[in-house]
């Protein structure tokens, strides 16, 4: 059972739009909305938030809220909820956080991992240039060289953008492997997007762990197929 997401926004249109965007990246993830007041005004409603939490599946729920009273209403909902241990509130920008959370949930991440995925978008962007020389390519924790590597040239017109990044990150987060792509975390959609890699750029993939080979092949397969794009 994948983690469910609840979007709490002052505006029904924002909540619905953000959910629509996330669904495009993560078609199997339940994204529920609690936007606006019960009588269709700008504002937030505990009733709507609780109703959304009620509909959420049993795999844990991560809430994303836009600002001010939306955060307060979401926190209040946790006080009223019958299963507060199965719900967490992510401190993340609504749209970016929701998309990152949806991609992580699509990849099978658990509730805390989905929350972390959402919150990681608020942090500093990780770009290969941000890594001091000699660190890039070293294993995440092991210090030894990667178990598998691969180099793949981007062939699709648009190169690395949101949808390919979501596909790579979503698939990798379900594998038992630590993967870097040009030095950034391969399971981080926003990390991949910061690469700003256009058509013709080469992605250098390094992978550690039990599924390392599968991970490299997965990325290679997607890149060589142009992510199904022209």
């Amino acid at each position: 059972m994948t983690v469910s997401l609840v979007v709490v926004s002052h505006s029904e249109k924002i909540a619905d739009g953000a959910a629509e965007l996330a669904a495009q990246m993560a078609p199997d993830v339940q994204v529920l909305t609690a936007g606006g007041t019960t009588d269709g005004r700008i504002g937030t409603s505990l009733e709507k938030v609780l109703a959304a939490l009620d509909k959420a599946g049993s795999g844990g729920t991560v809430i994303l809220a836009d600002l001010g009273s939306a955060v307060m209403t979401a926190e209040s909902a946790l006080e009223f909820a019958e299963n507060p241990e199965e719900i967490v509130l992510a401190d993340a920008p609504l749209v970016e956080g929701l998309v990152a959370a949806a991609v992580a949930a699509q990849g099978g991440a658990d509730m805390q991992a989905v929350k972390r995925a959402a919150e990681s978008v608020g942090g500093p962007a990780r770009h290969p240039d941000d890594f001091p020389p000699g660190i890039v390519g070293e294993g995440p924790a092991t210090g030894k060289g990667p178990d598998f590597t691969g180099d793949f040239e981007l062939v699709n017109q648009a190169g690395m953008h949101a949808r390919p990044a979501a596909k790579i990150a979503g698939g990798l987060s379900a594998l038992d492997a630590e993967v870097t792509v040009n030095g950034v975390d391969g399971a981080s959609m926003t990390g991949l997007m910061t690469l700003a890699a256009g058509k013709g750029s080469v992605l250098h993939v390094e992978a550690w762990g039990a599924d390392a080979e599968r991970a490299v092949n997965y990325v290679g397969g997607l890149v060589q197929a142009g992510f199904g794009e022209p």
Binding site: T44, L46, S69, M72
Partner: peptide, 21 residues
């Protein structure tokens, strides 16, 4: 508490709602 949090809409909803709760 429950009613104010559901019907007020602005920040006063969760604030007064939490107070009464």
């Amino acid at each position: 508490a429950m009613t104010l949090m559901s019907k007020v809409g602005g920040a006063a909803g969760p604030l007064y709602g939490t107070a009464f709760l």
